[in-house]
């Protein structure tokens, strides 16, 4: 009969572990409280089912243990019971799914007025690009990439000259402003993940993916690459700093625009072409 004890210990032990576990998610720093809430709801429903099934099973094992003078019941099926359980389960599933889909709908619908930043992943580090004064990110192509143009910007795109290029692993973003991250990978899959923001999305070479969130707390947050990307995957780290407007502006001012990068490399002819294009508009 030790096995009855075992079942009880495993069931109740799991519950106790859950309650005392110091391993739990960090305080949320973005607007995705809905995700946490859905997890909590899922916890309550699934936890109740887990405990109920476990305790019932422990009871059965103890109550109906073998006795050579007894005989088990002969009952091939009980449609009423089975259908009742099916319907209850369906209701539980709907209760889980509905809030999940609502949160997902928010997650994939970028609000108007969100500002954009491009995150570029490559083996094994991050780069960022801000849209600059015109507020529009210039178009890029992987074919353009070389030492002078690490982001592969199209020089004939009028929006590209004022783009701010950040060739470093750290990024600063604004507090309380919805932010759309455009995600691009140059070589293999990566995933820009900050646990406190909850959100993540793979970066896929050949396409641009995105997600959005609104940071709600200033501070310094560690970036982890969440999609296996080769030998250096574990070392693909960085920081996101959530700033007030003033600190953010100071940081942006320190960065170079694409125009400045080209100028510093002595490519003024390219700048001229780009400026002509801009005037044509």
């Amino acid at each position: 009969m030790f096995v009855v004890l075992l079942v009880l210990i495993v069931i109740l032990g799991s519950v106790v572990f859950h309650m005392v576990s110091p391993w739990w998610w960090s305080e949320i720093a973005s607007n995705w409280v809905g995700m946490d809430d859905t997890i909590i709801l899922t916890f309550w429903i699934t936890g109740a089912v887990f405990v109920a099934i476990g305790l019932f099973m422990a009871y059965c094992i103890w109550k109906f243990r073998y006795d050579k003078d007894k005989k088990a019941e002969y009952e091939p099926e009980n449609s009423k019971l089975e259908w009742t359980l099916t319907i209850l389960t369906t209701i539980g599933v709907i209760a889980l799914l509905a809030p999940g889909l609502i949160v997902w709908n928010n997650f994939v619908t970028v609000p108007k007025g969100a500002y954009e930043i491009e995150v570029v992943g490559q083996q094994w580090g991050w780069m960022y690009r801000l849209p600059g004064k015109d507020g529009v990110l210039g178009t890029t192509s992987i074919k353009n990439i070389d030492d002078d143009n690490p982001f592969g910007l199209n020089t004939d795109d009028p929006y590209s000259l004022d783009d701010v290029l950040v060739d470093a692993d750290d990024l600063h973003i604004l507090l309380d402003r919805p932010l759309k991250l455009n995600l691009r990978a140059l070589d293999v899959l990566h995933d820009f993940y900050v646990p406190q923001f909850r959100a993540k999305m793979d970066m896929v070479p050949g396409t641009i993916t995105y997600y959005w969130f609104t940071p709600i707390k200033t501070g310094e947050y560690e970036i982890l690459c969440a999609e296996y990307c080769g030998t250096g995957h574990y070392a693909m780290l960085g920081y996101v700093y959530v700033d007030e407007q003033k600190e953010y502006d100071e940081w942006v001012d320190e960065q170079m625009t694409f125009e400045e990068v080209l100028a510093s490399n002595g490519k003024s002819d390219l700048i001229k072409i780009a400026l002509n294009k801009k005037n044509d508009l």
Binding site: W32, M35, T38, I39, T42, T46, G100, I102, W104, F107
Partner: peptide, 12 residues
């Protein structure tokens, strides 16, 4: 049920 529920899957 956590991972299948698309919004919960995002952080996990």
């Amino acid at each position: 049920l956590f991972l299948g529920n698309v919004a919960v899957d995002v952080p996990l």
